[in-house]
C-alpha cells in the first residue's frame, strides 16, 4: 500500500495547533507501558495497603472498639468514593464536559432544600416517626424525581454554552441554599435540631445502620452502569455521533440523571455535601485510567476515591493529628484544582 502520509512531525504539529477544533487538554502523565488493567490492579493494591494501615495501625485502647469504629468509617468512605466518583464521571460523560459536576450544578443543595421543606411542611415529629430506611428511601426517591426533571430540562440543549450552564447551576445552587436557610429560620427549635442531625452527615460520625442499604443501592447502580459501559463510551463522542450510532441520547441522559441524583442523595445523606471531591477523583481517573473506556475509568474513579479518602484520613489522623479535617483539606485542594483548570483551559 502506498504511504499516504509523509508530512514531517513539524508540519503535523503546526496543523494541529492551527486547527480550531483542537481542545486544550490536561497533560497526561505518560506511563504507556502499563495496560489499563495493570493500572487498576496497581491502584487496587494501594487501596488495600492504605485500608490495612488505616484499620490496624496506631490502635490505642480497646482493639474491638477501635476496629468497629474504623470499619464504620471505612464503610462510609467506600460509599462516598463510589457515589462521588462514579456520579461525577457519569455526569461528565452525559453532559459532554469535564468541568461541571453534580455538586457544582447544585444537586446537593437541592437535596438540602428538599429535606428542609419536608420538615417545614410535615413537621419534625413526622420526620422522627417515619425514622429509618423507608424514610431514607422516600426522601431519596423524591430527590431523584425532582433532580431528574430539573436537570433534564437544563441539559436538553436550551443553554448553548457550558459557561451559561455553569452560571445557571451556580445560581440554582445558591438559590436552593438561601431558600433552605430561610425556611430553616422559620422552623421551631426542636424541628430544626431534628433536621440538623439529618442534614449534616459527617464522615466521622456516620449512622452505621444505613450502611447496608447504601451498599445495596451502590451494588445495584454499579451493575446498571457496568451493563451500560459501552453505551456510555459512545456518549463521549457527543450527542449527534452517539445518535448516529443508534444510542437514544435522551433516554440515556434521563437514565443517567436518575442514577446521578440517586448517588448524590445517598452521598449527601450519609456523609454530607462535598463539592470538589468528585471533581478531583474524576479528573485523576481520566489521567490514570490510560483509556477512555468506562469499563476502566469507572472502577478507577472508585479506587482513586478510596485511596484519596483512606490515605488522606490516615495521614491526617496519625501524622498531622487532626482527624476531622479530611473534607476541609479535600475541598480546599479540589477547589484550587477546579479554578486552575478553568483558568488554564480558558473555556469549558
Amino acid at each position: 500500500m502506498p504511504r499516504l502520509d509523509l508530512e514531517t512531525p513539524d508540519m503535523d504539529a503546526a496543523a494541529v495547533a492551527a486547527s480550531p477544533s483542537r481542545r486544550v487538554r490536561f497533560p497526561a502523565p505518560h506511563i504507556p507501558q502499563l495496560s489499563p488493567k495493570a493500572r487498576l490492579v496497581l491502584v487496587a493494591a494501594l487501596v488495600v495497603v492504605a485500608a490495612a494501615c488505616y484499620l490496624f495501625l496506631f490502635i490505642r485502647g480497646s482493639f474491638a472498639f477501635s476496629i468497629d469504629r474504623r470499619l464504620t468509617m471505612l464503610g462510609a468512605m467506600t460509599i462516598a468514593a463510589f457515589t462521588q466518583g462514579l456520579g461525577t464521571v457519569v455526569f461528565h460523560t452525559v453532559t459532554n464536559n469535564r468541568i461541571l459536576t453534580p455538586a457544582v450544578m447544585g444537586f446537593d443543595s437541592l437535596y438540602t432544600l428538599m429535606q428542609t421543606l419536608m420538615v417545614f411542611f410535615f413537621g419534625g415529629a413526622a420526620l422522627a416517626q417515619t425514622e429509618g430506611i423507608p424514610k431514607l428511601l422516600t426522601q431519596t426517591a423524591l430527590m431523584v424525581v425532582f433532580a431528574t426533571i430539573l436537570y433534564r430540562w437544563l441539559f436538553s440543549g436550551r443553554f448553548g454554552s457550558l459557561f451559561v450552564l455553569l452560571l445557571v447551576g451556580v445560581v440554582f445552587g445558591m438559590a436552593f441554599e438561601s431558600l433552605s436557610t430561610f425556611v430553616q429560620r422559620l422552623l421551631d427549635p426542636t424541628d430544626y435540631d431534628l433536621l440538623a442531625t439529618r442534614l449534616f452527615g459527617r464522615m466521622s460520625n456516620v449512622e452505621a445502620g444505613y450502611l447496608p442499604i447504601a451498599a445495596a443501592i451502590c451494588v445495584v447502580v454499579g451493575v446498571l452502569l457496568w451493563r451500560r459501559r459501552h453505551r456510555l463510551d459512545t456518549l463521549l463522542l457527543g450527542r449527534e455521533t452517539a445518535t448516529n450510532l443508534g444510542v437514544s441520547y435522551t433516554r440515556e441522559l434521563t437514565t443517567m440523571l436518575v442514577v446521578i441524583a440517586l448517588l448524590v442523595a445517598l452521598s449527601t445523606a450519609l456523609v454530607g455535601p462535598m463539592t470538589f471531591f468528585g471533581f478531583i477523583v474524576a479528573i485523576l481517573s481520566y489521567q490514570f485510567a490510560g483509556t477512555h473506556r468506562h469499563a476502566y475509568v469507572l472502577p478507577m474513579a472508585f479506587l482513586l476515591g478510596m485511596l484519596t479518602l483512606v490515605a488522606g484520613q490516615f495521614l491526617l489522623q496519625h501524622v498531622v493529628g487532626s482527624s476531622g479535617m479530611l473534607s476541609v483539606v479535600i475541598e480546599f485542594v479540589g477547589g484550587i484544582l477546579f479554578i486552575a483548570l478553568l483558568l488554564r483551559k480558558g473555556k469549558l
Binding site: T234, L236, G238, G246
Partner: peptide, 18 residues
Amino acid sequence: NHITARLTVRELVAFGRF
C-alpha cells in the same frame, strides 16, 4: 465534530461498529 475524550484513530473508527 468535537470529541471530549482522547481517542486513537483506531478507537474512533471502532465506534463505527457499535
